[in-house]
Design a protein around this nucleic acid. Sequence first.
DNA 1: GAAATATACCTTGCGTGACAAGGTATCTCG
DNA 2: CGAGATACCTTGTCACGCAAGGTATATTTC
Lengths: 123, 123
Amino acid sequence: MTRDGEGGEGRRSTLRELKRGALELVVLQLLAPGEAYGYEIVSAVTARSRGALEITDGTLYPLLYRLEKAGFVATRWETPERGVPRKYYRLTPAGREELATLGREWAAFSKAMGRLLRDQEGR
Amino acid sequence: MTRDGEGGEGRRSTLRELKRGALELVVLQLLAPGEAYGYEIVSAVTARSRGALEITDGTLYPLLYRLEKAGFVATRWETPERGVPRKYYRLTPAGREELATLGREWAAFSKAMGRLLRDQEGR
DNA sequence: GAAATATACCTTGCGTGACAAGGTATCTCG
DNA sequence: CGAGATACCTTGTCACGCAAGGTATATTTC
């Protein structure tokens, strides 16, 4: 069994659902500096979010496929002389636009949430 | 047709998915000052989030039902002498705890996202 | 050189939840 | 009474994260 070996029954965070929408933005951001391959992205998501976001490859690959179909990322196979073939993903120009848009949307949303949570009294 | 009358085909925000997980937190927060009834909450969500979060009653009622089943809110029917009967929702002690927990989780998550988006280079 | 392990990609099935769209009941107004 | 507003509720559909499986290649171990 080459899988994680999580062991526990998986205490699901209550904000699990929230993280759905953030994932696309995070992946695009991770690809901003340059290309990366699937497994690399999986571990980068956990590392760069400092554990706030944890995914498996079963989550990532369908997402990458959607991003590719939407024209936000392009792919390239690399078969090195040593090692397993890897599929590298990189942002397209449309992908950079999407990243910028999502970044703005995230900023607005997070600001609105912060304000709402800070206010003591309603209306 | 007493419904919104949205008209357009509904330009769905790309962060639509993200808002899922936030909704429970928002509703609990809206109930913090005191009780409110369904339709009131629907419009309060849009107003208090300044449009960042928009829901319909078809979204809210199932959520309220889940919150009630989880023991986070309690309900009370009020049939006024004038007007349509309303079902009022209020936080239970467990609901207040949940609100505090979700608030902390949101803060951590939003902080992690901000940091990730701010960083220029990855690894 | 076979077996075991690691790396890497991909697919299927399930459960959850937002949303549109429909429905019901009550009240007000002309 | 008919029209519209208010308010609650339910059903069906779709998207998506995730667990759990699978495949293929490369490396290590005996």
